[in-house]
Design a protein around this nucleic acid. Sequence first.
DNA 1: CGGCATCCTTATAGATACTG
DNA 2: CAGTATCTATAAGGATGCCG
Lengths: 142, 142
Amino acid sequence: MRKYDVYAENCPTRLLLDHIADKWTALVLWKISREPVRFNQLRRDVEGISTKVLSQTLKRLGRDGLILREVFPTVPVTVEYSITPLGRTLSEKLSTITEWAEANIDAVLAAQDRFDRDCACADNAVTANGAKRGLIQPAGMR
Amino acid sequence: MRKYDVYAENCPTRLLLDHIADKWTALVLWKISREPVRFNQLRRDVEGISTKVLSQTLKRLGRDGLILREVFPTVPVTVEYSITPLGRTLSEKLSTITEWAEANIDAVLAAQDRFDRDCACADNAVTANGAKRGLIQPAGMR
DNA sequence: CGGCATCCTTATAGATACTG
DNA sequence: CAGTATCTATAAGGATGCCG
């Protein structure tokens, strides 16, 4: 029996996947999972994230029960973010993705070069069974 | 020695992570990894994706060397997408994420309910060490 | 069938300023 | 320190129509 299916359009797991498959989630969650960390520290560690986006991300992660936010009544106030047991199970899986990215970036970069070069003379590339390969136009992709 | 670091703003792995941590990547890549599949079949399988976005996603995956696009000269033309060895190593890791989502959605949904309820009377929530918890405003998040 | 081009409507991100 | 508020720029997404 499968109750949920990420391939179904209106399945709640889709919304969850949107949260997980966010540009910053893996980065932020992993940092927090290593040790409790404060807002501005996080902002420095995750280079390029704005306070606004970090704030949104933390709010979402907190609501999803993946991280805990604790406010210590110091002056000025101290806020610490830490991972929950649920969050830890996810962050470990997510870290394998960032590790994969670091380990395979060279192969991907090489593939991109090959792809961009092949575009110019793509029409000559025909496989043994008569199928053409790699005929996708470059087009503008960041 | 670590050549690459996803936490560095201008590291190429960041761009790769953006591709991977895309709303549709895990869904599309996993379908293709199971068996070679055609464009419109993919569009039906991945509910809710538009032709435009599917097209972009496939192009990106092809350029990154994760999938292969083959054109068979039938009438009308047949196009088949299949996984590459490199892509397979990633799709296996990504599938653990979607599996996690399906397995833990109940816990997350419960956390969301708790969070949204606690917001109303959050000021009373003080932990033993004097720290307050869960004081994040709900705000509008889809 | 397998897309790309186009238009148009929302989001989302970024920068900046300001508050408890 | 830890954010919120606001404004703007840019892009992402959806709908539609067309073509090889």
